[in-house]
Write a protein that binds this DNA or RNA. Structure first.
Length: 590
RNA sequence: GCACCCGUAGCUCAAUUGGAUAGAGCACCAGACUACGAAUCUGGGGGUUGGAGGUUCGAGUCCUUCCGGGUGCGCCA
C-alpha cells in the first residue's frame, strides 16, 4: 500500500483490465478513474474502467465489468466487487485494509498527503501585484489568499513553486503618486497653497488624497528639510524633487504592502520591479524577439463595435498578432510617444519569468482583469510558454447584514489591515477559501468571527481542539508515549461505521491534494477539512450516546489506544490541510 | 455591440472536472447534555440546476441560442 490508496487500487484495476483487454492503449488506461462513491451503498470506491475500455475493446461495458469483478475478487484488500449501472465496478475494501492505513498516516505526520504528482515541474505563481500607490484593500485580499494557498497546495503536490509579486512601479500611476506625496510634503513644510490650487498645477490632477502619504512627507522633511520646495514653499521644478520623492514613496509604499501581507501570512519569494525590467531593456529585446517571429507589425485597429470612444481616430500602431494565438484583436505595444504599453512590459515580464526557469506560469488576477486574460495567454504562447490565469471575482463584505461599499470618496474604504484587525488572519484566509475563486462571494464579518457551526473556520478548529483534548487526556490516563504505542496498536476494535467512515475520509486526503492541485482549486481543501471535522464531530457524539464508542476507557487499554491512533491521525490530517491553507491550528478553544 | 466570469433549496454555497437517486450550512419543525469540551450531534420538510434545443450509454458540468447579474473593451495599470 502506498499513501494514496486510490491510486494504489487504480493501478490494480488497470492491471486487471490489461488481462481482459490485452492490447489496452495507454491513453485509455490513463482515463481509468478510481474514486470514492457518493453513496455508501455502492461501496467504498468505484471505477469507470469498463466503460472507458468498452469502445477500444469492442466489448460491452457490462461484459468487461463482469470480468473485472472476477479478476479483482482475488485481491487480498478487496472484500467485494460488483458491477453496477451502465458498467461501473463498485469496490468494497476490507475494514482491516482501511485500518491498516492509520500507522502510515501517523508516521508521515503533517507530510501526509504530499505526492510527486507535480513531478518537480517548475511553477511560477504571481499574485497580489497591487500597484504600490496605497494600502492594500479587501479587493486584493482574495487574490493574496488564493495565490498563497495555491502555492502551498502545488508544493505539497510535488511542484517546485516560486511565489512572486510584480511591482508596477513604472507607469503614470506612480508619477501621480509622486505628485500626491509632494502635496503632503508641501503641506508639511508649511505651504500657503490650497489643495485646489495645487491640484490645478498637477498633470492629470491630484489623485491620491489619503492620509497614508503623510509619513512619507515627514520622512522627506527629515531628510531634505524644505529643500525640495521652491523659495516660497511652492512647487519646485520636478527635476529637483521628482526622483527623490519617487524613490522614497515607492520604498515606503512597498514596505507597507509587505507588512500587511506578512500579517496575512503571505511572504513571497520574488518581488519583481517593472522599472528594473524596463531599465534592463527587456521590453525592447522581447519585442524584437517577437518581431523576428513575424508577430509584430505596424497597423491600424478597427474601432470597437457599438460603443466607439468619443475621441476615436484611426491611428497606426505597433501591434502584436495576438489573434494568431486565440485573442480577438491584435494588441498595441507602443503608445504614440513611442514608450511601451503596460501590456508590452508585461509580455517582457512573463518572458523574464520563463527565462528564469518556469515551466508553467500562473497569474492570479482580479476580476477586473478578465479582459486581459486572452491577450496575456496569447503572448505567453507566442513566447513558447504556458500560462494559466485564475480570476478572483469580487468580494462583497457584509457587516451586521449591511454591505460595506468600497468607496474612497465616501470614506468607507476598507483596508486589508482593517479587516485583519477585526477578523484575524486565520479566519480571513479560511473564509476566502470557502468559495470557488471564479465565483463572486459574500464575506460576512459577523459569520467569520462567530463561534458556531455556521462558521467553517471555527468548526474545523473546534474539531482539532477536540482531538488535542482527547490526546491530552490520553497522556494523563496512559502516560506519555501512548502515541508511540498507538502506532503499533491493535486496531481491530475500530469497527464502528462512524469510525471507518472517518478513516476512509482521512485516507482520501492525498487524493484530494492531488486533484485540487491539478485543478488549481485550493478551495477544495476547505471543503475537505469541513467534511473531516463533520465526520469527527459525528463520531464524538456517537460516543456520547453509546459509551462503548468513547475514545478513552481506563479499563480497556487496547481499544483506547486504537482510538487514540484514530484521533491522532485525524489531528494530523487537519493540521496538514490547515497548513496548506496557511491557517494555524489551535490546541484549545479559549 | 463584442469578449470573459457567474446563474443550483427561501438565503450563502458544494458537487471528486462527463458518472449512479444533485449535497452541506443557515432559516423552519421535532429530538439528544449525571460531558474524553452540547461552541456539538440526530431526524424531518424543502429542487423542472435561469428557459429552450442539441451531443451520448450518461449532462448541473460540453455545444448552440435566449434571459438575468458582474467585469472589461486602441496610447490606465
Amino acid at each position: 500500500m502506498t499513501q494514496n490508496i486510490f491510486s494504489d487500487v487504480r493501478a490494480r484495476v488497470i492491471a486487471a483490465l490489461g488481462t481482459i483487454v490485452p492490447d489496452l492503449p495507454p491513453e485509455v488506461a490513463a482515463r481509468v478513474e478510481v474514486s470514492p462513491t457518493k453513496d455508501a451503498a455502492h461501496g467504498d470506491m468505484a471505477t469507470n474502467a469498463a466503460m472507458v475500455a468498452a469502445k477500444p475493446a469492442k466489448m460491452k461495458p457490462t461484459e468487461i465489468a463482469a470480468k473485472l469483478v472476477a479478476a479483482l475478487a482475488d485481491d487480498a484488500d478487496i472484500e467485494s466487487a460488483a458491477a453496477a449501472g451502465p458498467g461501473f465496478v463498485n469496490l468494497r475494501l476490507r475494514a482491516g485494509s482501511w485500518r491498516g492505513l492509520l500507522p502510515g498516516i501517523l508516521q508521515a505526520g503533517e507530510a501526509f498527503g504530499a505526492s510527486d504528482a507535480g513531478q518537480g515541474v517548475r511553477v511560477n505563481i504571481e499574485y497580489v501585484s497591487a500597484n504600490p500607490t496605497g494600502p492594500l484593500h479587501i479587493g486584493h485580499c482574495r487574490g493574496a489568499v488564493v495565490g498563497d494557498a495555491l502555492a502551498n497546495l502545488m508544493t505539497k503536490a510535488g511542484f517546485r513553486v516560486t511565489k512572486e509579486y510584480y511591482i508596477n512601479d513604472a507607469g503614470n500611476q506612480i508619477t501621480a503618486l509622486c505628485w500626491a506625496t509632494y502635496w503632503r510634503y508641501l503641506q508639511a513644510v508649511g505651504t500657503t497653497m490650497t489643495e485646489e490650487e495645487y491640484s490645478n498645477e498637477v498633470p492629470g490632477g491630484l489623485q491620491y488624497r489619503g492620509e497614508y502619504l503623510i509619513p512619507v512627507a515627514e520622512a522627506l522633511v527629515a531628510a531634505h528639510g524644505d529643500g525640495l520646495a521652491s523659495e516660497h514653499k511652492g512647487i519646485a521644478a520636478p527635476e529637483v524633487w521628482l526622483e527623490i520623492v519617487r524613490e522614497l514613496a515607492l520604498a515606503m509604499m512597498m514596505a507597507s504592502v509587505r507588512e500587511d501581507l506578512a500579517v496575512l501570512g503571505v511572504v513571497q519569494d520574488v518581488y519583481s520591479s517593472e522599472r528594473e525590467l524596463v531599465g534592463r531593456k527587456v521590453t525592447d529585446s522581447t519585442i524584437e524577439r517577437l518581431r523576428e517571429q513575424g508577430l509584430i507589425y505596424e497597423g491600424i485597429l478597427e474601432p470597437p463595435k457599438g460603443k466607439t470612444p468619443e475621441d476615436w481616430e484611426p491611428r497606426e500602431q505597433t501591434l502584436f498578432r495576438a489573434t494568431q494565438f486565440g485573442d480577438d484583436v491584435d494588441r498595441p505595444l507602443r503608445k504614440s510617444d513611442g514608450s511601451a504599453t503596460y501590456f508590452a512590459n508585461d509580455i517582457a515580464y512573463h518572458a523574464d519569468k520563463i527565462g528564469r526557469g518556469a515551466d508553467i506560469l500562473i497569474d492570479v488576477l482580479g476580476a477586473d482583469h478578465g479582459g486581459y486574460v486572452k491577450r496575456m495567454t496569447s503572448a505567453v504562447k507566442a513566447l513558447g510558454g504556458h500560462l494559466d490565469v485564475l480570476l478572483c471575482q469580487i468580494v462583497h463584505v457584509l457587516k451586521d447584514g449591511q454591505p460595506l461599499r468600497m468607496s474612497k470618496r465616501a470614506g468607507t474604504f476598507v483596508t486589508l489591515r482593517d479587516l485583519l484587525d477585526e477578523v484575524g488572519p486565520d479566519a480571513v484566509r479560511f473564509t476566502m477559501l470557502t468559495r470557488k475563486s471564479d465565483a463572486q462571494m459574500e464575506f460576512d464579518i459577523n459569520q467569520a468571527v462567530a463561534q458556531t457551526r455556521e462558521n467553517p473556520v471555527f468548526y474545523v478548529q473546534y474539531a482539532h481542539a477536540r482531538c488535542r483534548s482527547v490526546l491530552r487526556a490520553a497522556d494523563e490516563m496512559f502516560g506519555a508515549g501512548q502515541l508511540a504505542a498507538a502506532e503499533g496498536a491493535a486496531l481491530e476494535s475500530l469497527e464502528d461505521e462512524a469510525e471507518l467512515a472517518l478513516i476512509r475520509r482521512l485516507a482520501s486526503w492525498p487524493r484530494t491534494v492531488e486533484a485540487a492541485a491539478l485543478a488549481r482549486e485550493p478551495h477544495r481543501i476547505a471543503f475537505f477539512l469541513y467534511d473531516v471535522a463533520s465526520d469527527f464531530h459525528m463520531l464524538w457524539n456517537k460516543g456520547r450516546e453509546n459509551a462503548a464508542l468513547r475514545f478513552l476507557q481506563p479499563e480497556r487499554t487496547a481499544e483506547s489506544l486504537a482510538r487514540v491512533a484514530l484521533v491522532a491521525a485525524t489531528a494530523v490530517v487537519l493540521r496538514s490541510g490547515l497548513a496548506v491553507m496557511g491557517v494555524r491550528p489551535v490546541e484549545e478553544m479559549r
